[in-house]
């Protein structure tokens, strides 16, 4: 393979972000547009001030041209994340969050922070969540088995982050398992 080693292990965060941007988000358009066909499907029509659902990449593009307001997903609010953070720090297992919350929240906080309530607080909460979850993943390392690994509710970005070394570590553990008397019995 001609890919550089760093790309062979797993996909990169920007690639995950690209994938996440296919998801739909609600916007309030500021321009009108007829229903338009894209490769991934037809979106529109945009009729201000009615809400419309379009992919995130398109919303980002329109937002940058100041042609829409993005409506934050229900989970991207201070109350919701605060509640999740409390759950995260009090329970032993991972709390359920949208699978691509890391990517989407980052993109929206980047381009549409003026459409979100209290973006700074959101950033802090997301960071705290990330750290709390990282600590749990780390604790999971101590009980790593060679054959199975159960970490439910882990998000795409987190899976991607731990994938290379978890796989390698599990492979090593697999190698260290004894293979009992095939045909040679020894010493």
């Amino acid at each position: 393979m001609s890919l550089p080693p760093s790309l062979r292990q797993s996909v990169t965060p920007p690639e995950l972000e690209l994938i996440a941007c296919q998801q739909l988000v609600e916007i309030v358009p500021l321009i009108s547009m007829e229903k338009t066909a894209f490769i991934s499907g037809a979106y529109g029509p945009l009729r201000p001030p009615h809400r419309a659902k379009i992919p995130i990449w398109m919303a980002v593009n329109l937002k940058q041209k100041k042609k829409c307001h993005i409506i934050a997903p229900v989970w991207l609010t201070v109350e919701y994340l605060q509640q999740k953070l409390t759950q995260e720090t009090t329970q032993a297992h991972f709390t359920q969050l949208p699978f691509r919350f890391a990517e989407i929240s980052r993109v929206l906080l980047d381009v549409a922070s003026d459409d979100l309530q209290n973006p700074d607080k959101l950033r802090t909460l997301l960071k705290d969540l990330r750290e709390a979850r990282q600590a749990k993943a780390r604790a999971g390392l101590e009980n790593l088995e060679h054959s199975t690994l159960g970490l439910s509710n882990l998000s795409a970005m987190e899976i991607n982050e731990i994938r290379p070394f978890f796989i390698q570590a599990m492979a090593v553990l697999g190698q260290l398992q004894p293979v009992f008397n095939k045909d040679r019995n020894t010493v």
Binding site: E142, N143, L173, L176
Partner: peptide, 22 residues
Amino acid sequence: LADEGKQEMSNLLTNTFRKRLV
């Protein structure tokens, strides 16, 4: 190694690996 030695050796290697991994 013989079978009983194998298990012990494997445990030694696995435990060491796991404890150091973190």
